[in-house]
Simulated assay, not measured.
Amino acid sequence: MERVKRIFRLTHLVVWLLFTWLVSLQLDNDKDVYWRSTTAAFIATCLYVFYLHFYLLTQYTGRQNRRDYWLRVAGIMLTGPMPFLLFHQKRFDAGYYFMHLIATVPLFLFLSWLARVTENLVLNTIRKEQLEKQAVEAELVNLKSQINPHFLFNTLNNIHTLVYKQAPAAPEAVMHLASLMRYMIYESNAATVPLARELDYLQDYVSLQQLRYKNSPVVDLHIAGETAACSIAPLLFIHLLENAYKHSPARLEPGDLRVWVEIKEDCLTFRVQNPIAKKPARALEEPGGIGLPNVRKRLALLYPGQHTLDVHSTGNTFTVTLAIHGLHTPAHER
């Protein structure tokens, strides 16, 4: 905001210097013997009227007491030509006074009003954009913070059991949890992260969830395309994967959860499919939950008009497909 105000002040200075140069050049071409004093007198009158009204508008913007404002405007109109009379070397000439009263003063009253309205419009637009940006950022922070705490508690209990049994998988589980927490706390604060890092986060999550199952890996993950050159908003897929675990049967066979990630040109497709438990403990989109409603809100904020989220159920399986287009478009253009 201060930067914009400095730009306005610099613009005022440049415009007035250019205007002074043009007036002096015109008076010099007209062979006016007193062109220097005439220029100084005319510019002084213009500055007096312009900035007195400019700051008067600042004082009375949005106020209901219009009577005082118009009284002060009348005072500016009556005293406006006085600087011209003070600076000019000629003796007092009533013609000069009335000429400036009729022509110059109203003109610069209007120009000062136009300048104030323009500045207010620009500053108010910037303030509105900043407030909207802060609201969006606060909403995104809130949505990203809604990772299920039960997962963390369950994982710690599972690791505690592994440590108690002195299982060889305990150190690796601790490393997966550390990597997952490091990503959630530090790396996910960025606007976008490399897709490869987001997929590493998902794989750490899958590895920790696998502690619940004695079978071979229950998640079948397929990745197609070049992930190194692609960036994505962080923590965008975790809710979809978490829901797949939550609404699947308690016992999962190897490969029951299927996850596809495909990158084709500037389009990313993420699909997760899981079997549906016959008697789910909770509704798929429970009120206040962190599943699909969370993902829909974040997508609306991050990729407006650039995504599709399709949900399909066959009665036995539940499939969610997320497609994001224009991933190479800069964030400020989105």
Rank of each mutant, 00 (worst) to 15 (best):
L199K: 01
L107K: 08
T329A: 05
V141H: 06
L71E: 12
C46F: 00
T79F: 10
R91L: 13
I43S: 01
F42A: 02
L284I: 07
H307Q: 11
V49L: 04
M77W: 10
A40G: 04
T45Q: 05
P330S: 08
V295P: 12
N189F: 07
P330K: 02
V15C: 09
A103G: 11
F8H: 08
K90P: 07
I76A: 02
D30Y: 15
P280N: 11
Y205T: 02
R282F: 06
D68F: 05
G95A: 08
L140Q: 04
N142C: 05
H328L: 15
L292E: 09
I159A: 05
K144V: 03
A103P: 01
G95I: 03
I76P: 00
N243D: 10
F42I: 00
F270T: 00
R197H: 09
M184T: 07
A229Q: 14
G291Y: 01
P275D: 03
Q306M: 14
N189W: 08
L236P: 04
V320D: 08
I102G: 01
A228T: 09
T125F: 13
N154Y: 03
F92V: 02
L52S: 13
S216I: 01
L211S: 11
G315N: 07
R9I: 06
S207R: 05
E132T: 12
L241Q: 04
L292R: 06
M77H: 09
R67F: 09
Y96W: 14
A178Q: 15
L156W: 12
L268M: 08
A138Y: 10
R334E: 10
P171F: 03
F151W: 14
L302P: 02
N294Q: 08
W260M: 08
D256F: 15
F8Q: 09
P217C: 05
T269I: 12
E137T: 03
V193I: 09
R67W: 03
S231I: 02
Y97C: 02
V23Q: 05
T118F: 11
L13S: 13
A228P: 08
H53W: 08
P149F: 02
D204N: 15
G291W: 01
V311E: 15
W260Q: 09
T269M: 14
F92W: 07
L27S: 01
P293M: 11
H53R: 05
L143T: 05
L121S: 13
T227H: 04
V49R: 00
L162Q: 13
W21L: 13
D28I: 06
Q203K: 15
Q209W: 03
V141E: 06
F153V: 11
M82L: 15
E132D: 14
V259M: 11
D93M: 01
R6D: 14
E172S: 14
I126K: 07
K246W: 10
G80I: 00
S145N: 13
S216C: 04
F50I: 03
E129I: 10
T45R: 00
L57H: 01
